[in-house]
């Protein structure tokens, strides 16, 4: 059972209180009605499913109710960072080089 830091509650709580909410920083296209079938499939279905460092969303559903983002290693299941929703994709703590990625 994971121990998850909620950036809104300011403390780590049992996974029981949380619900996983998929990969983070996948913005809903502004012009969603206009995009191609391929682009829609990419947005709605395709995920990185990263083995290693992954940016993902959680909701503290049985706590403060907030969605937030984390960086987790999907091999060790270690959390490297939790940060509030709306913030840009955060760099991996301790990583020497900034990680590429969009700020969504």
């Amino acid at each position: 059972m994971l121990l998850i830091h909620c950036p809104y509650c300011g403390e780590s709580r049992s996974e029981l209180e949380f619900r996983w909410a998929g990969e983070a920083h996948i913005a809903r296209p502004e012009n969603i009605a206009e995009i191609s079938d391929e682009a829609f499939a990419e947005y709605f279905f395709i995920r990185d499913n990263t083995k290693g460092i992954a940016w993902e969303r959680w909701r503290h559903i049985h706590g403060c109710g907030r969605f937030f983002n984390t960086i987790r290693d999907t091999v060790s299941d270690k959390f490297l960072l939790s940060y509030k929703a709306g913030l840009a994709r955060q760099p991996v703590p301790g990583a020497s080089e900034p990680v590429e990625g969009d700020a969504a």
């Binding site: 992954a54 999907t74 060790s76």
Partner: peptide
């Protein structure tokens, strides 16, 4: 388990 992982372990719950 609810989250994506390659760890081949999961929670007691």
């Amino acid at each position: 388990d609810q989250y994506h992982s390659y760890s081949q372990t999961g929670g007691l719950q």
